[in-house]
């Protein structure tokens, strides 16, 4: 469960930010947040991920409360899969090694062979990526797919997806949306930001609109 309680966030040297956010996202629900760019959608996800801390108010993510639990951020991150925007990869490593590193950090599994087999299986079942290709040689859409796969791998409890459909074609969007819906049904909480409001509408997903740092429900828009 994720709960924002009168939460505000302002950037140290910037005007604007999030204002008075009150939102509860239940376990296993799928929520979309959409807005044009520069409306702090990423900031909202970064708050859930502990990358930034609230300026005021409270944020409850799984068993952690922020800002109090700021020293437990790395523990929280092990339970969250995050498709970053912009991408954050080890560009000089292969697709496979990027995923292995992610799993080694997130899991306590010690047998490298077992981790490698999970990675190989995931790449094969979900993508057409060449596991031995260096990330720096991938196209934008391939990087986006790797970004999503990295967030999914390792059975996270929360899935944060920052503009996950950018650079993807219609077919790919449909494939991944189906998978995210499946994941939420299996109990994973999914929070995605999108620039295109048609996507949540099309899949009947609860959506919020961000305007001037405030979070509005569809009908308040």
């Amino acid at each position: 469960m994720i709960r924002f309680e009168n939460l505000s966030y302002s950037y140290p040297n910037k005007t604007g930010g999030l204002r008075d956010i009150n939102l509860t996202i239940e376990k296993g629900s799928f929520v979309c947040i959409y807005a044009p760019s520069a409306e702090f959608k990423t900031t909202l996800l970064n708050l859930i991920y502990g990358e930034v801390l609230p300026s005021s108010g409270k944020l409850y993510v799984l068993d952690y409360t922020f800002p109090e639990d700021r020293k437990k951020i790395s523990r929280l991150r092990k339970k969250i899969g995050y498709a970053f925007h912009p991408f954050c990869f080890f560009d000089d490593l292969t697709v496979r090694k990027n995923l292995i590193v992610n799993l080694l950090i997130k899991q306590t599994e010690r047998h490298l062979k077992h981790i490698e087999s999970i990675v190989d299986e995931t790449i094969q079942s979900l993508t057409k990526l060449n596991p031995l290709e260096l990330v720096k040689n991938l196209s934008y859409s391939e990087k986006q797919i790797l970004n999503i796969v990295r967030a999914l791998i390792g059975d996270p409890l929360v899935l944060l997806l920052d503009d996950p459909f950018k650079h993807l074609d219609k077919e790919e969007i449909e494939k991944w949306m189906k998978l995210f819906v499946e994941k939420s049904r299996s109990g994973i909480t999914v929070v995605a930001t999108v620039s295109n409001p048609a996507i949540p509408q099309l899949y009947g997903i609860k959506a919020f609109f961000m305007k001037k740092g405030r979070l509005l429900e569809e009908d308040e828009k």
Binding site: E51, S74, R75, L76, R77, F89, F90, K106
Partner: peptide
């Protein structure tokens, strides 16, 4: 950059 990325992925300071 690599250390920052490890942190982003959830690596603790000790890790």
């Amino acid at each position: 950059q690599s250390i920052q990325l490890l942190k982003m992925l959830g690596a603790s300071r000790a890790f």
